[in-house]
Amino acid sequence: MEPLRIGVIGCEIARMRYHAALVATPQLRVTAVTDPDPRLARIWARQIGGRPTVCADTLDLLDQPLDAVLITTPLALRAQAIADALRADLPVLAEVPFALHLADMDDLLVLASRSDRLLMPALPRRFDPSFRKLHQLVQENALGTPEQLRCTWGLPQETDLPSGDSISGGWNAHWQFLACQSLDLCFWWQGEGFAVSADMEMAQLIGTPHPRGKKAQADALAILLVTHPHGRSIHQFMRTLSVRPEERYFLTGSHGNAELIAGVGASTATNLPLPYLTLQRVGEHASRVSVDLTPEERALSPSAIRIRRLLQHFAACVRRQEEPEIGPHTARVALDAVHAAYVSACEQNKVSLPLRRFPDIAALLCRFQGVRKALPKGMG
């Protein structure tokens, strides 16, 4: 079977997150690329191989003979690129969040429904073997009723950040991307939330520089508390001085708990095989839970494995060999909770889900320009 011809809109993020997985996915072949920076598009076209066409802009790319589109543009341009691809009658795999505003997000969902075209959010952790194994444990009631999930993200100060202004790029865009991933997992394991409380360092999210002479230090970006039908989830995002990202999940149930370490950070032994999943039932010792990998996957990084599996599922859905496991509603629910976190942090109260009004995130952030809001004691 011939590989699907895929066009990539936005080469900066695609090169960083998708390159290794695309090279290892024979079901897809990149045949056209475009980027707001033509130089980035030319460089990545040479690196990805296959001599893809370097297009002048999104509309030029959509005129090429394509079977599907991967959209990884900067956040400010993403909604328009998704809309253009759907109007061109092409299946779309897109980075999350889809848009800066919930109103634009809803317009995309209506457009996808009317065009009857696949619009799939890029949530690769749902396809990671270890994350799926943990989901299986939850579904099989191995932990009992899920009561609390704690998600910890340690982000190196030197993280490569998306381009754009202080609202649509930098730490703010990167945090929204990570928060969508983290919140989607808690909804997957615990059911959709119905309230969000948050403390956020708005000045840090919009890149306010440290006072002159002050050295970079570990900072808390955000802490989210989400209430679910059975318990709650806590999401903590930190900027750290470590050179390695940390990503950990600790799920407590009525009959036991499970811990999944996806990134080692500075506090975990570097020789730990990742991801590392352990299960401890009440009255028993903790034991490691193994997962199966294919021979091809053993040569890839955990990130490349999960993205490769996402790409394989997307290709199978485009060919109508599989039904989509995730759709645009999944991305909508996660973004609703992200925006609720901004509102909660500004109004300093709990916010119910779904939101009844669409907040202007840019306006909320600008209110905190240059103002550093301290997190409560014991939460940093």
Rank of each mutant, 00 (worst) to 15 (best):
L355I: 00
E325A: 15
M120V: 05
H235A: 02
K215V: 14
L260G: 09
Q136V: 06
A220K: 10
W175Q: 05
R5C: 10
R150W: 10
L119W: 01
M202E: 08
R78Y: 10
A85E: 03
V338Q: 09
Q312A: 12
I13M: 13
G170N: 06
G164M: 04
F314D: 01
V96H: 05
R126M: 08
K133G: 11
N349S: 12
T25S: 07
A266V: 05
D292C: 08
T34K: 09
I6T: 05
L375G: 14
G10K: 01
V343Q: 09
L93S: 03
L70W: 01
E95W: 08
G191C: 11
P3V: 02
W44Q: 03
R309N: 06
E322W: 09
C180N: 13
M202F: 15
E259G: 12
L123N: 04
V33K: 02
S352G: 07
L77N: 15
V243S: 15
L66I: 10
A81P: 02
P354C: 10
C11Q: 05
G380D: 11
Q280W: 00
F250H: 14
I206A: 04
V23L: 15
L155D: 07
L310Q: 10
N141T: 11
L111T: 03
A79W: 04
Q176D: 12
E296T: 10
I71G: 00
F314W: 06
N349G: 14
G169T: 02
L102H: 00
V318S: 09
Q47N: 10
L143E: 04
D160V: 14
G380Y: 10
R117Q: 11
A94Q: 01
A21W: 01
P209A: 04
H210D: 12
A374N: 08
R15F: 05
I43R: 13
S254A: 08
L86D: 02
L70T: 01
H228N: 05
T252I: 14
D219C: 13
R298P: 06
Q348Y: 05
L109T: 11
A112T: 07
T72K: 14
R320I: 11
G169Y: 06
V54M: 03
E325Q: 15
E158N: 08
S166I: 12
P36K: 13
Q157R: 15
P97T: 05
A45D: 00
K377N: 12
T294W: 05
L90P: 03
T145F: 05
E247A: 12
L134T: 11
E325W: 13
M238I: 09
F368S: 13
K133I: 00
P229C: 00
M120R: 08
H285E: 12
G169N: 01
L225G: 08
I261F: 03
S197P: 01
L185F: 12
G154P: 02
A266T: 02
V96E: 11
F358N: 15
L86N: 00
S168T: 12
D84G: 01
E296I: 09
L178G: 04
T278F: 10
G49L: 05
I234L: 12
E297P: 04
F98P: 10
P129D: 03
T268Y: 10
L123P: 01
A68V: 09
L123T: 05
R39Y: 06
T270N: 15
R308T: 03
